[in-house]
């Protein structure tokens, strides 16, 4: 169902994007102050060094964020994103260099002297991540506090919200996918689920960052899953990869290569799935909103609003489904790594 939706939403967004850019191509240049819809969408979907909320006329309502840089010869340096901007247009660019450092129009950090510099800025997504983490911490800790205060009693307050999810993850995801040794992995799966779920949900808020739709975030989560799966891989698991049972010897080199690649494609699929599902959803919503500005028609406005509301509803579902799917697949990969196979006897 998720996959179907994913496909649909990608198709829809691709259609809308091509449609809107095509429709826009004529009007965009002629219109003064008009935005390129692809840029408008991408601006919202991608990470940024400042948190841009909205414009009132020509006034940008933004939250400047810290820019932290590291260069081997300069050490750690701290700035604010507003240091690197044109104060009128809020544009980043080489011409707004500050202290020998600039942020280019693609939001890449650079040095005027051309040296290497690393970017450890608290970007919009990092700030968003802190908010998500704070919320997850609040939920989980206050739920845990309920049990700490009252002992093993019925849930109340936040615990009523958190507990069913905890039980669901434990019983439906961990126990069913991992098997008898599931208990060790439940805390990781819970953290994963709550982080992705809250990230997905908060990402739907207007003005919020597209945290879980950022490839760096999904990459990190998938990497952690990859590490967890492989350090827990038992003899059977590795045997399956490097000496796949039941495969004729001539085929073994090919199979081993395939199995070895499979180690990496699993987390890669995790990374791409979450990234695409969330980003695509955002793109669809933004595309519908962009339609209003392209056509500048009330009728389109009404239709767009209806569609955006509808897609938002679906996105609420997708937010949960994707958190579930990421957690479920992680649990299944762990289950594959720790399972005691009984197939050794038939070859």
């Amino acid at each position: 169902m998720t996959r179907k939706f994913l496909f649909l939403s990608l198709l829809l967004s691709a259609l809308l994007l091509s449609f809107s850019s095509a429709g826009f191509a004529a009007g965009s240049q002629s219109e003064e102050g008009g935005e390129d819809p692809t840029g408008f969408i991408m601006h919202h979907v991608k990470d940024s060094h400042e948190w841009h909320f909205f414009n009132i006329g020509h006034t940008h309502v933004t939250l400047p964020l810290p820019v932290i840089t590291y260069a081997s010869d300069r050490g750690l340096e701290f700035y604010m994103s507003s240091d690197f901007q044109n104060h009128e247009t809020h544009q980043f660019g080489e011409e707004n260099a500050h202290n020998g450092i600039f942020i280019d129009s693609h939001e890449h950090l650079g040095r005027v002297d051309g040296g290497a510099i690393l970017d450890f800025s608290i970007t919009k997504n990092v700030a968003m991540m802190f908010i998500v983490i704070a919320l997850v911490l609040y939920m989980a800790l206050s739920a845990a506090g309920h049990y700490k205060r009252n002992g093993a009693v019925a849930p109340k307050g936040v615990a009523s919200l958190v507990e069913p999810i905890v039980i669901f993850v434990r019983d439906e995801i961990a126990e069913k996918s991992i098997g008898p040794r599931y208990k060790k992995f439940v805390p990781y799966l819970l953290t994963l689920f709550f982080f992705i779920w809250i990230g997905n949900l908060l990402g739907l808020l207007p003005g919020a960052a597209n945290l879980t739709g950022n490839i760096a975030v999904t990459f990190t989560l998938a990497t952690l899953t990859f590490i967890l799966v492989n350090i827990n891989g038992n003899k059977d698991y590795w045997k399956h990869v490097f000496a796949t049972p039941g495969v004729p010897l001539p085929l073994l080199p090919i199979i081993v290569v395939v199995e070895f690649i499979g180690l990496f494609t699993k987390p890669f699929a995790l990374m791409v799935r979450l990234f695409v599902a969330i980003t695509a959803g955002h793109i669809v919503i933004l595309a519908f909103i962009a339609l209003v500005f392209i056509f500048e028609s009330y009728a389109i406005g009404v239709v767009s609003t209806l569609m955006v509301t509808f897609i938002n509803m679906i996105e609420l579902l997708v937010a949960t489904i994707q958190a579930y799917v990421f957690t479920l697949f992680t649990a299944m990969y762990i289950g594959g790594a720790v399972a005691e196979h009984a197939h050794d006897d038939h070859h």
Binding site: K46, I122, F275
Partner: peptide, 21 residues
């Protein structure tokens, strides 16, 4: 910032913050 290229800064923060979480 690129859409499909993970940025090192975000990975860094994500790793630290997620592990702390």
């Amino acid at each position: 910032m690129d859409l499909i290229l993970p940025s090192s800064g975000l990975i860094f923060w994500q790793l630290i913050a997620f592990l702390a979480l």
